[in-house]
Amino acid sequence: MTNSEQRGYHGIDIGGTKIELVAFDAAFAEVHRERIATPTADFEAFVQAIVTLVSRGDAALGLAAPVGIGLPGIIDIATGRQISSNVPALNGRQVADSLQQALGRPVAIGNDCQCFALSEAQGGAADGLPTMFGAIIGTGAGGGYCVDGRLQRGLNAVAGEWGHWTVPAPLLALHGLPVYDCPCGKQGCLERYVAGPGMSRLHAHFGGDGAEPAAIVARANVGDALAERTLAVHLDLLAHAVAGLVLSYDPHALVLGGGLSNLAHLYERLPEAVRRHLFRGVHVPPILPPRFGDAGGARGAALLARQLA
């Protein structure tokens, strides 16, 4: 065990509106937490904000601790530049290199979905299992895959990006749905149908007002036919996606994250819906709520720093 492993880690969760740093000791007990607004337009201001947060975290731990960051978007492995981020200041920038130079230490970077998965694989809902998949269903849809508690990243570090699988044309036709364009540049991505805004989009397509998911569920619970139809179609599309995850990764458990992970009907109805999309003899793994919820991003980032140290 190295000295850094004995003393602590910083985990930083970066979002479109806030940056949160949590400093953990060696046992991953929280020592310090701080949240600030994200500088979205000025890259130098963004870097300085991270430096300031880490400096305060170092003071709380009493050492210059390794840093892990959950960053939105992906990194082009050929150039090291950030793309598809919801923080405009980061796009086209070599974020990892810039932060490593500014902080004077290695920086481990994963996307927010991967950090969520790692947090739930180590001490979370899937703790101790040989494999798990963490599936975020919130503003977007993505995930991460862990084996023996370690995040598996792949050549492009995009393993688990199921939200950008394409919905099959026959399934769209079955439900009378159009092919939606996706900001990623593709068409018909699952994210456009099964993420939170996707459920609202389905509701509007069927003639509703495009209500928020929680409102759609509440209406369905009192017998609103349009809301019931929206939930049924959303469930079938999500079940198709989860069946694909089962066939691709065969995880021992699947942990849901993001805003839709708070919808109780998913845990009640999703397993059977997934089974209908699988061939005989393939079993649906447990589908679990997250243990850490919104706190998982920073914790997972710190765990990633330990994994890659």
Rank of each mutant, 00 (worst) to 15 (best):
A159L: 14
D58L: 05
G104E: 12
Y180P: 00
A301F: 04
E272R: 11
V284S: 10
N86A: 09
A243I: 09
Q307K: 05
D236T: 08
V107P: 00
T40S: 15
E272S: 14
Q6L: 14
T79W: 02
T230V: 11
S84V: 00
S98Q: 13
R306W: 07
H203Q: 14
Y145D: 07
I36S: 08
A264Q: 15
C115E: 01
D236R: 08
V167F: 00
G128H: 00
A305E: 06
G210V: 01
D42W: 00
G128W: 01
R192H: 04
G259T: 03
I83E: 13
T166L: 14
L129R: 13
A121H: 03
D224L: 11
V222A: 09
R150D: 08
R56T: 06
R276F: 01
G92A: 07
A157V: 08
G160M: 08
I137Y: 01
G142F: 02
V107R: 04
G134D: 08
H10K: 15
G281N: 09
R269F: 06
L247K: 10
L303D: 02
L238V: 05
G259M: 13
L263M: 15
G154E: 10
S98V: 02
Q114V: 06
D97C: 02
N86G: 07
E228Y: 01
V67Y: 03
A26S: 14
M1D: 10
V233F: 06
L270N: 01
A298R: 04
G154D: 08
P106M: 13
A126E: 07
A102D: 12
Q100R: 15
A108G: 06
A157C: 12
Q82S: 13
G104S: 04
C182D: 14
T38V: 13
Y249W: 07
Y193E: 08
G258T: 11
A157Q: 12
V222S: 13
V222Q: 13
A273E: 12
L235K: 05
R275V: 00
H164T: 06
P197A: 11
E161A: 13
L308S: 14
S85K: 04
G163E: 03
D76N: 14
Q94T: 13
D58H: 13
C146D: 04
G244C: 12
A65P: 01
H277P: 01
V158F: 07
E191F: 04
D209T: 12
L129C: 09
A195K: 09
Q122T: 10
A102K: 03
L270A: 02
T2N: 10
C189K: 06
A169P: 00
A126C: 12
D127L: 04
L245C: 11
D148L: 10
I216N: 07
S200Y: 04
A211E: 15
